[in-house]
Design a protein around this nucleic acid. Structure first.
Lengths: 261, 261
DNA sequence: CGCCCACTTGACCACGATCAATACCGGTGG
DNA sequence: CCACCGGTATTGATCGTGGTCAAGTGGGCG
């Protein structure tokens, strides 16, 4: 099988999905690592963090570490859900598509995040890589067995899923009730609170403006205009399009909270 | 302590919250029922459904069955979260408020639904009764102990929370990307798929138009107009404002799915 | 160097919000 | 019985935020 062709850069609906895993294509060969968990950068804040070192080794026996290049598809809506994943580096986007191409990104899984599926058989959302991304992959059945054997892991999963739920509910408030600038401010602060930020008050935006728009229920143009407005107002410092300095976090927080200004 | 005063009917931001539980007020006395679980109408589809009868009795020992009248508050954002609940009849609304009064309802917990809280100490959302509602109340610590002792209960909780998460993510798509009529159609179909419906294709709307609007990210006026439009188009049959007959479910489904018409 | 794409900016438009008036419904009391 | 009242729902007129359409800019990569 030839290596995967260079994937189209276009993030819109015309993208030809490139299967990363599955029955028919395997463009990214699994990485072979002798001690995957020992060298894992996100071990301390992923679900695995709850396991003592000895048990971590058992987990390591069933994991497949793997890599996606930017814009590669991890899975698509409707596909049978065979695996669960932990993100170890890079970033993904999880989204749904309406028949006419409208897209809603429901999350950007970052290192340490766990990609679960509900009890049902198939994926309700599609997922692709924003940037080059590495993941730990487990079969659902093997992972389920672990959950049965290691209570602390199951407990961690319960807590994390509950957290995710509340995050999603807070995002519902963003989407249902906030103005464009409040949404963008909320988004910037949300990124600021992630582990993987460059330095204090500087946020890295690996995703495109279209991705941000599809996450916030806006259009690219509105996102772009809002960034420009923030810059004019001295709230942010935007030199490259993928790096934002938050120069007035207090004002951004006020905006994000919905305190009219 | 005098009995609770008649609560204001107004569901807007000027409502004086009436504490149902907590340190300072107890307007609704706990109901004393000899065999609460045995007579529970939602037992078959609530979390408890996973427990065999014998273990159900253990659960029954720690439960406090209780009742809220319409518009009574169960808890408010920021309050310490002492309890978890299962709804057994009626309906609640779970919502967040922005400082200027904008409100987003993130869910209408119905009979069988479980009101959990994340790992953190206090509530992130407020919750009040839409109609007269009965609940089973457990202290968090007692419930946590149950979860440790009964694996099947913990497993059921994991699955249910995962389901809720996916539901919330689908609602993000509604809020971020759907038009007003698509939102209303989605909402009606969502209610149609609940257990507690009157008869085939007739949906009961216990909540006000304002509640529906705050759930869908719209205004009362837009919700009302959309209902009227649906009636003119022969999609629904609306005689009383709280009862809707869905006369063309197929067309509503198309609308809800986002197939432009 | 030049192409491609993402981003930015501008002009105009439309969907749903806002403001306002009226209809409706249940409850209460004369 | 009807008049009145408070709260909710409906309908109409107008407005504004953010979407749409279009043109221009700029960076990365072959």
């Amino acid at each position: 099988m030839p290596p995967a062709p260079p994937q189209p850069k276009n993030a819109n609906s015309t993208v030809i999905p490139i299967r990363a895993f599955g029955t028919s294509a395997e463009p990214s060969a699994p990485l072979v690592v002798s001690d995957p968990c020992g060298s894992c950068h996100s071990r301390t804040y992923s679900l695995c963090a709850c396991l003592p070192p000895g048990r971590l080794e058992n987990l390591a026996q069933t994991v497949t570490r793997t890599r996606l290049r930017a814009h590669e598809t991890l899975f698509e809506r409707g596909e049978k859900a065979e695996f669960v994943y932990t993100v170890t580096s890079g970033a993904l986007k999880l989204y749904s598509l309406l028949p006419d191409g409208r897209r809603q990104i429901v999350g950007f899984p970052y290192p340490g995040d766990f990609l679960n599926v509900g009890p049902q058989e198939s994926h309700l959302f599609s997922c692709e890589a924003v940037t080059e991304t590495t993941l730990c992959r487990f079969t659902r059945s093997e992972y389920a067995a672990f959950l049965e054997n290691y209570r602390e892991l199951k407990q961690a999963l319960v807590e994390r899923t509950g957290d995710e739920l509340q995050l999603a509910q807070m995002q519902m408030t963003v989407l249902g009730r906030k103005t464009a600038s409040e949404r963008v401010a909320s988004f910037l602060l949300q990124l600021l609170n992630k582990r993987s930020q460059l330095s204090a008050n500087v946020v890295h935006l690996p995703m495109t403006r279209t991705d941000i728009a599809d996450y916030l229920g806006l259009t690219t143009e509105t996102v772009s205009r809002t960034f420009s407005q923030f810059r004019r107002d001295g709230l942010i410092n935007l030199t490259i399009s993928e790096r934002v300095g938050l120069t007035n976090v207090a004002a951004l927080s006020q905006l994000a909270a919905g305190l009219r200004s």
